[in-house]
Amino acid sequence: MDEILEVLSNDARITPAEIAKLTKRNVNDVKKAIKNYEKNGTIVKYKAIINQGMLKEEKERVRALIEVSILPQKDVGFDYISERIYSFPEVSSCYLVSGTYDLLVVVEGSSLQDVSEFISSKLAPMQNVRSTATHFLLKKYKEDGQIFKRSTQSKRLNISF
């Protein structure tokens, strides 16, 4: 992976000037590379990772992993039905997987009811969806490489030779 992407994936707020300094490159080259990555879709977007558990004032969002078995269609295979599913804003992630089912769909809602409603009224009745199995998430330990635990204090001494 290009070092620019490595640095950005760790801290999206870092400026091109800083990246140029850290990676010993020309700042204009860095800017150009980032523009290209944005344009060709390598960099999709910049966002903050929020630990929802820390948002005391808001009700926690409910998430569910749904195993979906589908009937593939002639010519378009799984892609057509997948698009029908992932286009719903309630769907936060959607993967085609190998194994006993076909699509792993992650759905988010404001309550259990909300998510159930989406599954029963939108997802399950969809043509070519054979069956669904829903797993509500109870606790998030780690996501996208990020561990959701208050950072522990460094165990190092403040000074040593």
Binding site: S154, K155, R156, L157, N158, I159, S160, F161
Partner: peptide, 22 residues
Amino acid sequence: FFDLVLGMKDVISLGVGEPDFV
């Protein structure tokens, strides 16, 4: 000087001879 550093809190230390990674 070492004792002084070890006794202080909230110090940003560039005085450590070991990696900051676990």
